[in-house]
Nucleic acid binder design. Structure first.
Lengths: 342, 342
DNA sequence: AGACCTAAGTTAAACGTTTAACCAAAATCA
DNA sequence: TGATTTTGGTTAAACGTTTAACTTAGGTCT
């Protein structure tokens, strides 16, 4: 039988209340008592029972992490990494993370994750794009929520977001400063807020550098973002017969698909076409040439999201804070300097 | 305030014990009472409190999933997939999965996952290789355990294992039947049981096909399995100046490292060297040429492991069952036929 | 008819914490 | 000095279940 607080109390010759107060760092306890208690705890190998704690505190000690099937199954380690970040952070706090996936196309009749129905979480983290229907349904439970890498601007939630605009601006600037003037922009899922922000970052950068904007250089599909849509977008761009020396894809998957197309049509990368993606996923390194990208601090995002949750939970404030995490441009061999600007 | 069992009891005009017995399907309750209780539950939207239940039943409803840092951080989606498999299966049962990572090189003074210390799990799944020290330490808690893709043969545990021997035998046979007689075998971490099994599979296949075995074709490093060690192993093989037309690497990461080395030294794959890995991870497809491999059903393994756990937990039997999951050879462009055998 | 069993509930204790309310002794104050 | 405050603890209730032990009203035997 594992030791309980009573055993500790007995050994330390104090009451259970003293042990509890001591453990939880209450001011009322003197240093000496605390030491006595700590010794007893150590000697017995005592650890408080979670269920007993949860029962009295009316908390569950769990945080739910929700992701769409699509995002998890893609095995792009993108959201997996974010999940891991939350897990890392959760260890420092008295919480566990419970993972659940929901159908990508969540419908009215679909069931919410079991931990919601069973009331087994104190709050939820939602990563990536989810349907409005899902969001509406889950909001009826009134749980503290932090969204990650996605949010509906009209609904007010706490969120951890990527600096999409800044990232693509950086990429665009980098290309411009390396002599590229005709930079194509490939994207899909164009109604996705993040994609719009990325597109915006591209436009802003052109403007700032007084480079004329051309519709012809933009390929915006309404299919789902994927390697295939990257391939298709590159094909469409190619068909237009317009001049370009560089391509920015709205994420790495699309960039990789685009590279595939270009290679098939005999184009040399980066000699003829420079290319930059977004996300910084593992396989970028294994491309030929290695893909340049905007690196997103995925582990950090998970940690930030968890911290934000803790803030809401423990300080009882929910100010719908938004955290924008910075991104970093990583130039690899997929980008070539055409001519240095003086 | 969420309704409690008392509210249900009051509304249904019975005692809380009756409600409890009714919910848990005890025989003593008549159909009519049960219906009354169920109506009250529905009307109130009642859901039993997990912590209260756990406290009294001394169960937690959680299963711990333990992985080393190294294995998770590698972002090889290998163990991530296995984890997902357990999660999928857990949904069908009244359990949640709690994930924790431990230091790859777990030492005596390292702390066990928090959910162990806090007694928040009813059983544990351990995926991938863990140190003996860790295993010894965790076994003192006497928790039902299922190991995945690893086990110490001298300790008797339930486990879900890969058909390592069969897999490599298949690969070897496939190469032989395509005219390869000089097949190199590259591995690292040679004391790892799985690696030994794979090596064994290679030897057996040669024997069966009456192909002479040569020490010169075996590179067995004692470093950790990784892309780098694959690179190094290939280099070592190259240095020996021995003749070979095909290579089997003990996993995909090593195969990819080896391919890198061969490419750097100007060798054509598969024209000059055919190569096969093991695991079937996502990036195989993005290799140039796409890497042939032994495919492991990762999601299935997770599901199997969870089911095994349930069996142990609910049937109260622990027969130290071993499940060997079958593997499949996937031939992609990295393998070339030298000459058909008649 | 009386003894005994059975069926279907109920009562109350227990699980291991936290914490509001209480208390005694020591310190401080007027 | 006696009243009051502060300090450092203790007592006991409460959290929401489960379940062993008990009860009570009918039924069954002989």
């Amino acid at each position: 039988m594992r030791p309980t607080i009573k055993d500790v109390a007995r050994l330390a010759n104090v009451s259970t209340a003293t042990v509890s107060l001591s453990i939880n760092g209450h001011a009322r306890i003197t240093k000496e008592t605390k030491i006595k208690v700590e010794k007893a705890i150590k000697d017995l190998g005592y650890f408080p029972s979670r269920s007993a704690r949860d029962l009295v505190s009316r908390k569950t000690g769990n945080i739910g992490f929700i992701l769409t099937d699509g995002h998890f199954l893609k095995t792009e380690p993108f959201y997996t990494q974010i999940f891991l970040g939350t897990e890392f952070e959760a260890r420092k706090h008295p919480y566990y993370i419970l993972l659940a996936t929901i159908p990508t196309n969540f419908k009215e009749e679909d069931e919410l994750p079991r931990f919601i129905l069973e009331n087994s979480v104190d709050g939820i983290l939602i990563a990536g794009r989810v349907s409005k229907i899902f969001l509406k349904k889950i909001m009826t439970y009134g749980l503290p929520t932090v969204m990650i890498d996605f949010h509906y601007s009209e609904k007010n939630h706490s969120a951890v977001l990527i600096d999409n605009m800044g990232g693509v601006s950086k990429a665009t600037n980098a290309l411009i400063s390396r002599g590229h003037n005709n930079i194509a922009f490939l994207c899909a899922e164009h109604e996705h807020p993040s994609i719009q922000e990325r597109y915006h970052g591209y436009k802003i950068a052109l403007e700032k550098n007084s480079i004329p904007f051309s519709e012809q250089l933009i390929v915006s599909l309404d299919t789902i973002i994927s390697t295939e849509s990257g391939y298709d977008a590159a094909k469409e761009l190619n068909k237009r017969g317009v001049d370009f020396s560089a391509v920015i894809a709205c994420n790495d998957a699309m960039a990789i698909g685009a590279m595939q197309f270009f290679k098939e049509t005999g184009k040399q990368i980066p000699e003829e076409i420079s290319i930059i993606g977004f996300d910084d996923i593992e396989i970028d390194l294994y491309q030929d040439p290695p893909l340049s990208t905007i690196s997103v601090p995925k582990i950090d995002m998970g940690q930030d999201a968890f911290q934000l949750m803790i803030e809401i939970l423990e300080k009882r404030i929910n100010n719908h804070k938004k955290i924008i995490v910075p991104v970093e441009l990583i130039l690899r061999d997929s980008v070539k300097t055409i001519s240095k600007l003086s």
